[in-house]
Every structure is written in C-alpha cells, then in structure tokens.
Simulated scan of single mutants.
Amino acid sequence: MTDHPPPHPDQPPPYSGPYGQGPYGQPPYGHAPGGQPPYGHAPGGQPPYGQPPYGPPPGGPYDPRWGYGPPPPQNHPGEETTWAVFAYVGNLLIGFLPALIIYFVKKNTSPFTRFHAAQSMNHTLTLLIHLLVVVAVCVPPAIIFDTPAFLILLLLPYLELLIAGWVFLILGAVKSGKGQYYRFPTFFCFRMIR
C-alpha cells in the first residue's frame, strides 16, 4: 500500500522521470526531435533567424546595435558624494568656510569633490561680486544727491542672494548626493576657482 491517494480519473498519471526530460521517450523541453537544432535556431549553431550574434562587437566596448545598453555612469564612492554634499550644505548653514576647507583637503585626491567644493565657493563669490557691483553703483549717487532712493537697487542682489543662493545650493547638494556633476548657470557662478 502507498500513502498517496489514487489519481483522479480525469488527471494524467504522475511522471516519475528526471526533471526536464519528456515522458515516453520524447526529447527534453525546447529541443527538436531527431537531433535537430533547438527551435528558433538556424542549422549549424547559428543564432536565431533575424538576430545578430550575441556579445559585444569586435571593434570596441560598446555599440548600440548590440542591445546591451551604454556603459554605466561612473560611480563615486559614498565618501566623495558625502564631502560634496557637505560643501553645499555647509555653505548654506555657515557660509564660505566649509567649502574652502573641503576644497583644500580633497582637491588632490577627489576630482568629484573638488568640482563641487569649487562650485560652491564660486557661487558664493559670484553673489558677493554682484552685491559689491550694485553697492559701488548705488551708494555714490545716494551720497552725492543725498537721496536714499538709489539704494532701492540693493534689493536686486538681496533677492538674488535669497532666492538663487538657496535654490542652486540645494540643487547642487541633491545632484552631488546622486553622484552627478551639475554646473550652475554662469551668471550665478563664475568659474574663478577650478
């Protein structure tokens, strides 16, 4: 006697042969009978009809015709992205000094961190230059004509510092955290430090 119940009359009997082998002398799944090549393949071991041979092309590491996609982007270690994010966040919280320290510590060891620390400093210096130019243009006429109406133009660099300063530094921190290079627009970030 066996421990198994008898099969239902509508079901086929269980197959006790090796896994992947067809019952009753049939070839394994996916193979054609009589030693022919597998279904969908051309005779002689060639790839399937209408498809290119597999693998990279002989001429180089990547060709979009072969379908395995472009090479992966250069990944930066977690330490590099952390220092790059700190260059922007430190600039938001404290000012110019954290980006300057990170730049001098990492400038010879990490080009990624160096780029982002330099960009953070360049952004701050650019906004300072914008402020000084507007002050140099507005203050002398205000003093000469003894009217503070000329000082209203100081509102422009203040708004620029308030809005563009925060927006670009946060955007730079996010992009550097993802390991990406992101260049600020030149008007807001002159490339003085490289």
Rank of each mutant, 00 (worst) to 15 (best):
L93Q: 06
E79K: 11
G67L: 11
Y68F: 09
L161I: 14
L161H: 11
P98L: 09
T81G: 03
L171G: 14
I94L: 11
R65Y: 13
P77M: 08
Y49V: 10
T82Q: 10
I101W: 00
P57S: 15
L97D: 01
A84H: 01
Q180N: 14
G69C: 06
G90A: 06
A118D: 10
V139H: 01
L132Y: 07
T147C: 11
F96H: 06
F112P: 01
Q46H: 11
N75W: 12
P157C: 06
P53Y: 09
V174S: 10
K107Q: 12
K178H: 15
G69E: 04
E160I: 04
G78N: 15
E79F: 14
A136I: 13
Q180S: 13
L125H: 03
I129R: 12
P77D: 03
A118S: 02
T81M: 14
H123C: 10
A99L: 08
V174I: 11
I152H: 13
S110K: 07
L128Y: 05
G177S: 13
T81R: 02
Q180W: 04
V89S: 03
P64Y: 13
Q74W: 14
V133D: 05
H76T: 06
V89Q: 04
G59Q: 15
I163H: 03
P61G: 15
F168P: 00
V135W: 02
V135G: 00
P140F: 05
I144N: 10
L131Y: 10
L132G: 12
V135F: 02
I94M: 10
T124Q: 02
A117G: 09
P77Q: 07
W166T: 15
L155F: 09
P148Q: 12
P73W: 03
G179W: 02
P141N: 07
A84M: 08
K175D: 08
E160Q: 14
Y68P: 08
V174T: 01
G45K: 08
L159H: 06
A99E: 00
L131H: 07
T147G: 09
S176Q: 04
I143K: 10
R65Q: 08
A142V: 00
V174R: 05
K106F: 07
I152C: 07
T82I: 12
L156Y: 12
K107A: 11
G165V: 09
R114E: 10
P47H: 04
V167C: 08
L169W: 14
A117W: 00
P57H: 14
Y88G: 00
I170E: 07
W83C: 11
A164H: 02
P71L: 15
G55I: 04
G165A: 06
I152S: 13
H123F: 13
E79G: 10
K178L: 09
G60L: 07
K175A: 15
Y158L: 15
L156C: 13
Y88L: 07
Q46P: 02
L156E: 08
P71G: 14
H76F: 02
V89A: 09
Y103C: 04
G90S: 09
T124N: 06
P61V: 13
N108P: 05
H116S: 08
Q51V: 12
I144G: 03
P73I: 05
L159E: 12
V139F: 01
V137Y: 00
H130Q: 13
P71V: 15
G90K: 06
A142D: 05
T126K: 00
P52F: 04
A173I: 01
K107S: 04
W83S: 07
P57T: 14
L125T: 10
L132V: 13
I129A: 13
D146C: 11
M121G: 06
T147V: 10
P47A: 05
V89P: 00
